[in-house]
């Protein structure tokens, strides 16, 4: 959760663009990664991320803080956006075609070994059930708390813990095979 987030969201709700800009800078890479892992194409991920933040800005007054951070609300919008995306676009390409795009987008990586390692994990995560993917990304990549994940996925904290356990177990097994 971003420092002073409650204050920033209040200012953004009041129409202050600079406050929303700060929220955007903090959450946009996270939301982008979340979407990117699910759609596998950079341009599509960019478009969907743009739509998520457009919706967040235009409908920010609908966001009411119930003790969970602004990020959880953004993840909810992102999940729905991805679902709508797949509903309208049913001719999704095979997982293998995504791999090259992932390699191209990891610009900060210094060596090929790391790239291949990331690619292997990325490809393996894609084989998991969607809710396992989401939990792994939120918990082990983005370091969200269980409460935040539960709020974003609209599940209980107990259910999220169970999902985390199963997801990481499933990922380990797949990587070993």
């Amino acid at each position: 959760m971003l420092d002073g987030e409650n204050n920033l969201t209040k200012r953004a709700i009041g129409g202050e663009a600079s406050a929303f800009g700060l929220l955007y800078n903090h959450y946009q890479p996270k939301i982008y990664r979340f979407i990117y892992f699910k759609v596998g194409h950079r341009e599509e991920a960019e478009d969907l991320t743009h739509q998520v933040f457009m919706k967040a800005w235009t409908n920010i007054r609908e966001y009411k803080s119930r003790g969970f951070p602004f990020g959880s609300w953004l993840y909810r919008i992102a999940r729905n956006q991805v679902i709508d995306h797949y509903r309208t676009k049913k001719d999704e390409g095979p997982i293998e075609t995504v791999q090259n795009v992932v390699l191209a987008s990891t610009s900060d990586l210094r060596d090929l070994d790391s790239k291949l390692s990331i690619e292997k994990i990325r490809a393996t995560i894609l084989k998991l059930k969607p809710e396992y993917q989401e939990v792994i990304i939120m918990k082990f990549v983005e370091d969200l708390t269980t409460k935040e994940i539960a709020s974003a996925l609209e599940k209980s904290e107990g259910a999220v813990k169970l999902l985390q356990h199963r997801a990481i177990k499933g990922l380990k097994e797949m990587l070993n095979n």
């Binding site: 890479p29 990664r33 892992f37 992932v102 987008s105 990331i118 994990i121 792994i136 990549v141």
Partner: peptide, 12 residues
Amino acid sequence: LKKLKLLKSIEP
């Protein structure tokens, strides 16, 4: 878990 953290390097 360390490898999963590497996925953070993917940025827009």
